[in-house]
């Protein structure tokens, strides 16, 4: 590494970041007015924007690259759907649960899984953690494919759902605003983490784990906390995604490419910045839509080309090209 003269100091909080977030929110708020016909695209894009930002709490701020987030997404989707389906809900609950309770239980389960998974694997550094995430997610996928209570390889159908705050959950307009709320929630949490003790500790751990330890920070604990927050938000996104899909199967929802997609959206967008992952998700969704007729189902080609270009020419992602802050957060090593 090249010697840096001044140690990377966390920048003073400026309004720059907040303005970008507000601009992002404004774009999302205007979208239904301009493109009311393409709500499918809008909903899925926003869900993935939120998922990429959730991923980034662990992948960007804690610097732990997970390629297993599909499992957490799946826990949110499966828990909510199973608990809402009269034929599948466990007998002791005495009947189907409303989707919001199902989503909360899914989030709790995801938190529990992340707690155990993180405590066990964060002792390993770098690529070992990434390899373990692939393995855990694949095991969960195999369980989902081979169990009866998950609907096996045929997956699940969303049953009739009660109205949520007066909204019909199968109305794309309503789903759009729920996804919008999900993105705003991840934005707020990311902003909050950034200016908290946790945020600074995570950055310290990411830049120099031994140095952080010497300062009295417990790296494993910090990473586990980041993982739990990331997992809870991802499970929430999973519940929303299940409502959006209405029917899903393990071969589409729990596969490695979904995990890879979420991670690459965040990394291509810029894992060092707050809004980078959301911007990456939106850009990739737009690219995918533009090239859909050219590439058909080979749309991951764009992800491959972009991640290669990013690793070679823009290590801090697309937003890193524009913000000095993003650059600083991303490279010091």
């Amino acid at each position: 590494m090249t010697a840096s003269v001044t140690p990377a100091r966390p920048r003073a909080l400026t309004f720059g970041n907040v303005w970008i977030s507000l601009a992002l929110i404004a774009v999302m708020a205007v979208y239904p007015l301009l493109f009311g016909k393409s709500m499918n695209f809008g909903v899925s894009t926003l869900i993935f924007a939120g998922l990429a930002m959730s991923w980034n709490l662990l992948g960007g701020w804690a610097g732990q690259t997970s390629l297993g987030h599909a499992a957490l997404l799946g826990i949110g989707a499966y828990t909510m759907t199973i608990l809402a389906t009269p034929e599948r809900v466990p007998a002791f609950l005495g009947g189907p649960l409303a989707p919001w309770w199902g989503a909360l239980i899914g989030m709790a389960l995801a938190a529990l899984l992340a707690l155990v998974w993180g405590s066990l694997t964060f002792r390993l550094r770098g690529s070992y953690f990434t390899l373990s995430t692939i393995a855990v997610a694949l095991v969960i996928r195999l369980v989902a494919i081979n169990s009866d209570w998950t609907g096996g390889s045929e997956g699940l159908f969303m049953p009739e759902l009660p109205r949520f705050l007066g909204l019909d959950l199968f109305d794309r307009q309503a789903e759009y605003w729920l996804a919008f709320a999900f993105v705003i929630l991840t934005l707020i949490i990311t902003h909050a983490v950034r200016r908290s003790r946790l945020g600074y500790a995570l950055q310290a751990v990411r830049e120099d784990e031994d140095g952080a330890r010497a300062l009295g920070i417990d790296p494993t604990r910090m990473k586990v906390i980041a993982f739990v927050i990331s997992a809870v938000l991802t499970a929430l996104g999973g519940s929303l995604y299940a409502i959006y899909l209405q029917a899903f199967e393990p071969h589409t929802l729990l596969e490695l490419p979904i995990s890879v997609q979420i991670a690459l959206m965040a990394i291509i967008g810029g894992r060092g910045s707050i809004q980078g992952p959301a911007i990456g998700a939106i850009l990739l969704a737009v690219f995918g839509e533009v090239f859909r007729t050219v590439f058909a189902n080979a749309n991951l080609l764009i992800y491959g080309v972009l991640i290669l270009a990013v690793t070679l020419y823009a290590p801090d992602g697309i937003t890193g090209l524009f913000t000095r802050g993003g650059r600083k957060l991303g490279t010091a090593r």
Binding site: V260, L300, I307, L308
Partner: peptide, 8 residues
């Protein structure tokens, strides 16, 4: 990440 991209 680069090899992941190449694989895709």
């Amino acid at each position: 990440l680069a090899t992941l991209g190449l694989g895709l």
